[in-house]
Design a protein around this nucleic acid. Structure first.
Lengths: 158, 158
DNA sequence: GAAATATAGTTGCATATACAACGAACTCCT
DNA sequence: AGGAGTTCGTTGTATATGCAACTATATTTC
């Protein structure tokens, strides 16, 4: 029973929580893989694009500063620079200078960007429903959202 | 309320499950980021190495065929080839031919590999405990493990 | 048992990502 | 006001990953 051995070594981590963590990362990887494949088959952009467009579409004036966006989609600033390059190249967003801070720029979603978001959502939603939501009771969904929301909130603030 | 709009379009996906999904991918990304950083600071290998070594250490004779390992750690076969290259280069595992199938090879953990696993676990466990387990009640951990375990199981079999 | 098909693992290639370093602009502090 | 230190976004570089194509071997089919 090496699980036991490890559990002894690990201060403050019991087996139940370790199991929850493994289930989390594994289900995340497997479901994302399937959704990415579905998007590719529908000739739609990858999920990272969706995340960016969704954040922008919900922001005031459809735009966010680069560093806000990087934080929102959990990406390094350099990673975001390149991702935004690609989206801008595809015409789904525009960079706009910030008059109040001349170091910075906004990423602003375009009409094409909003249209792409709308085309992606059905495929994404079907993937979430079929590979994830399908397997949860209402109560489990509530608990998962609450608990993992708290985890994410704590990780963000620290 | 664009959430509402999207919810209407999405067949079979309600808002609670959509929220659970977003909490899942966000918490996953944030917690992994912090754990990777902790490992790097301790001059330990990245998490992908841990996953490989853990699977091997729990397998009969400490070894698995390449395709089994790829499936276990949720990586493409080509991705695994390169990952195993790096681990083998570091002496943490060995490739061994399979006498029963001359196309294939085993990846077999070495003593150094087991030692590395033992050195990584305390850092990994502390990360899981501090950034994840900390924020869950016992009951929530149970529900999350059960529900996401089911999600992962379904995604694997299909 | 030979031919057709499928599978195992590796490789070339294209893409994605993080880190460190950079120039430019901002903020604070006295 | 002005210098010290900070923050913003980008870039060079190294690393990681998936897909498609490839070789070698196994399996199936007739």
């Amino acid at each position: 029973m090496e699980e036991k051995v490890y559990a002894d070594v690990a201060g403050g981590l019991d087996q139940g929580r370790a199991a929850a963590w493994r289930a989390l990362i594994t289900s995340n990887a497997l479901v994302l893989e399937k959704i990415e494949r579905a998007l590719a088959e529908a000739e739609l952009p990858p999920l990272g694009w969706y995340d960016v467009l969704l954040e922008l579409s919900g922001a005031p004036d459809g735009r966010l500063r680069m560093h806000e966006l990087a934080r929102a989609v959990v990406l390094s600033r350099s990673g975001l620079t390149r991702l935004v390059d690609r989206l801008e190249g595809a015409g789904l967003l525009r960079r706009e200078p910030d008059p109040a801070d001349r170091r910075g720029s906004y990423a602003a979603i375009t009409e094409d960007g909003r249209a792409t978001l709308r085309r992606m959502w059905p495929v994404y939603a079907a993937g979430i429903a079929g590979h994830f939501g399908e397997h949860l009771t209402d109560e489990e969904a509530r608990v998962v959202a609450g608990a993992l929301g708290r985890v994410a909130g704590a990780a963000r603030s620290r």
